[in-house]
Amino acid sequence: MAPEQIRSVILDILARIAPDEDLSELDDSVPFREQMELDSMDFLDIVMELRKLYRVQIPEEDYGELVTMDSTVTYLTPLLKDAESTV
């Protein structure tokens, strides 16, 4: 998947986790937690969803990479380069 596809996969997951949030104004360089009400359980949901969709394993010590949309996409790009988009 290309970075833009990864971005829309993440947006899709976020929309499911936080159905009440307006994601159209999301700033990719600002931490998710500063823009929406996400707690540590929500981040776990993102990790589980990615594993389910693409069998990608994200070790606990890398959870910090999922802080902004930019850092998430950068982190996932090499891991998902061979994956087919589901979106």
Binding site: L44, V47, M48, R51, K52, R55, Q57
Partner: peptide
């Protein structure tokens, strides 16, 4: 409920390589 989810994530992680 939340601990059930947290540990399920570990179970899923454990089972994923085999499934793959």
């Amino acid at each position: 409920v939340n601990y059930g989810v947290i540990v399920s994530n570990d179970v899923d992680k454990y089972l994923t390589p085999a499934a793959a």
